[in-house]
Design a protein around this nucleic acid. Sequence first.
DNA 1: AGCACCGATGTTTACGTAAACATCAGCGGA
DNA 2: TCCGCTGATGTTTACGTAAACATCGGTGCT
Lengths: 334, 334
Amino acid sequence: MADVAALAGVSSQTVSRVSMGLDNVRPETRRKVLTAMAELGYSANVAARALRYGSYGTLGVIAHRLARTGESRTVEAVVEAARAQGYTVTLVDVESPSSDEVTAAAARLSHQAIDGLVIIRAETATPDTLALPHRMPVVVSDSRFVGHHPAVGADQIDGARRATQHLLGLGHATVHHVAGPADSGPAQMRADAWRAALTEAGRDVPDVLRGDWTAGTGYEIGRELAADLDVTAVFCANDETAAGVLRALHEAGRRVPADVSVVGFDGIPLAEHLWPPLTTVVQDFSGIGRALVDLLLQQVRDGRALDDVHTLVPVELVVRASTGPAPGARRRDS
Amino acid sequence: MADVAALAGVSSQTVSRVSMGLDNVRPETRRKVLTAMAELGYSANVAARALRYGSYGTLGVIAHRLARTGESRTVEAVVEAARAQGYTVTLVDVESPSSDEVTAAAARLSHQAIDGLVIIRAETATPDTLALPHRMPVVVSDSRFVGHHPAVGADQIDGARRATQHLLGLGHATVHHVAGPADSGPAQMRADAWRAALTEAGRDVPDVLRGDWTAGTGYEIGRELAADLDVTAVFCANDETAAGVLRALHEAGRRVPADVSVVGFDGIPLAEHLWPPLTTVVQDFSGIGRALVDLLLQQVRDGRALDDVHTLVPVELVVRASTGPAPGARRRDS
DNA sequence: AGCACCGATGTTTACGTAAACATCAGCGGA
DNA sequence: TCCGCTGATGTTTACGTAAACATCGGTGCT
C-alpha cells in the first residue's frame, strides 16, 4: 500500500479510500491511484483489513460426509445464501458426526477466520458434550439442539408420516421401514413418525430394518424384504437406500409397484429417473440453507445468541410410479 | 491477550508463547496463563496472527454446481487432503463455469484470506480470459490449462475410449454417445475419444446427442434413442445421464442389456444400484483431490508457480449388468 | 477583503499478534 | 567473590489497514 501511495504520489490513506470505493476522492487522483495499483499488482491484505474491521466475511460450515446427497445440497444452499449476503464459506468435513469430531472441527474452524458457525449435522453429539468456541454464533440443522442453539430442519416427522399414510391409503396392510443409522437424529425422527403413523392407523408395526443411508445396505436389506412375500410396502429413510431396495426387488422378480410399493426420502434429482420413478418426500434443501444463513447472520449482526429459535422447513410428498395399490386391494378391485 | 496477561500477572509475550506451545516457559507460569485463558474465554485472533505471520492456513476452492456428484466428491477429497496438510478450505460456488464468473469468484476469494486457489472446473474459461489475482498459487482440474497453470485431471480420453471399445468388443456395430454440454472441457474430451475409438475401429460415427449432464435430458434423449431400433449401444457422458437413458429404455419396453447396452461415466455410488446395475468408467475423485492439494501446496511453500505440470489420474472401467452382447451377435450365437 | 465553511487529502493511531531484542535472576567455575 | 553464561520473561516494534483527527486550499457570503 505504501508503494502504491508513493508511486501515485499520494498518502496511503488516499489509497485506502480508493480501494474502499469511497467517493470523496478527486477523479484524477483516483485514476492515478488505480493506475499505480494495477502497475504494482496491488490488492488489499485481508488479514489487516479483518484485524482493523473485526469481521472476516466468512462463515464456517461443519459437514458430515460431504459427498452424500443431502449434505452437499445443503452445503451448496448455504454457500449460495451466504454469497447473497456477502459472505463466503469455510468448510470442514468430519468423518463421523460425533461430539468429539464436531468439537475438534469447531476448534479447527475457530482457529480460522470465521464470523459464525453452521453445523450441518451433529448426529451423535448432544448439547452437553458439544464444546463450541466462546461466544461464537452458531446454527445447527438438527432440531435436537432446540433450546441450546438455533436450529433449522426439514419437517422430518410430517414427511415420514405422509409417506406412511400414502402407502396405507393405497390399501397396504402395513409398511416396512428401512431406517438410517441408529445414531442419526433425522433417521430416528423418521422411524418414530413411521411407527406413530402405523400405530395411529391400528396397524402392525414390523421390526425396523437398520440401514446406514447407503444404497449398498439398502440392497442387502432389500433382498431380505424381497424374499418375504408378505411385504408389499417399503418406506426407505432416504432415496439411496430406496435405490438399493428397488434393485433387490428387481433381481428377485418382484414387480414394483404391482407387488411391492417403495417410497424414498430426500428428493434427489435421480429419484425421478430410477426405475420405476421413485415416490419420495422432497426436502427443500435450499430453503434450509437460506434459513440457516439467515438465523446465523442475525446473530452475527446483533452480536448475541438466539437460543430458542427453531425453523421447521416443510417437505413435500411427490408421488411417482414406484407406489401403487396393494396387491390385495387390486385383487379386491378385479 | 492483554487481559489474559494482566490476570495471569505476566506479559503478553508470555501469553503468546503459551498459546504457540513453545517450551521455554516455566510449567508454573504456563499453568497460570492457561487458567487465565480459560477464565476469560480467550482464543487467539486469527487476523492478527495471519497479519503477523503472512499465511492463513486456508485454500480457496472454486466449484461449479456443488451438488453435482463429481463436483462434490472432488470437493470432499480436496477438503480431506487439505485437512491432512493442516489447511482448511474456503468454498465458492459458481453458477456457470464461464471466465467472467470464475474470475469474479477468484476475486471474491482473493478478498478472503487464502494462500492458494483450486479451480475445480473452468470449462468455458480459457487461459487468456481468466484473470487471477496477482501471484496467487493456482491449480486447475482441467487439462486445457496445461502450460498456464498446473493441472490435474482424470484420464478422460482413456476412459471414453475404453467404454467405447468395451461396447464394440461385445459385438455392437457402433456406439451412440449422449454427450455433456458443448462448453464443457471434459465433455468435449469424452466425445472426441469416443469418436476416435469408433473411427479407429472403422465404424460409423453417429451424430453426437447433446445433453447437459442431468438425468432429465438423458431421459429426453433416451426416448429418441429408444424409438430407434438400430440403436444397440449407448455411451453416456456421465452416470446421471445414463440413469435417464435407462428409464427411457424401460418405458419404451427396450430390454437392457438384451436390446440395448448402456455405459456411464463417473462411478457414482448409485451406479451399482441402478436397474440394471450400470457399467461405468470410475473416476478416482479422492486421488484427484489429493493431487490438486499436493500441487497447490508445493507452490504455496516454494513461493513460485509450477507452470507445466499435468497430473493424469487413471480411470477404471467397471463392467456391470447394463452391458451385454449385441442383439446381432447373440443371434449369431444361437 | 475577510471570514466561515467544505471538500480533498495528509497524519496519527489502534487493531492483536509474534519476532527481535533487552533484561534479569540464578548458577557454575575460576 | 566475581564473571559470564543460560534460561525465563519483559519491552519494543512491525505486520497492513482504516478510523479519527488535522490540515490546507478554495468558494461563497457579507
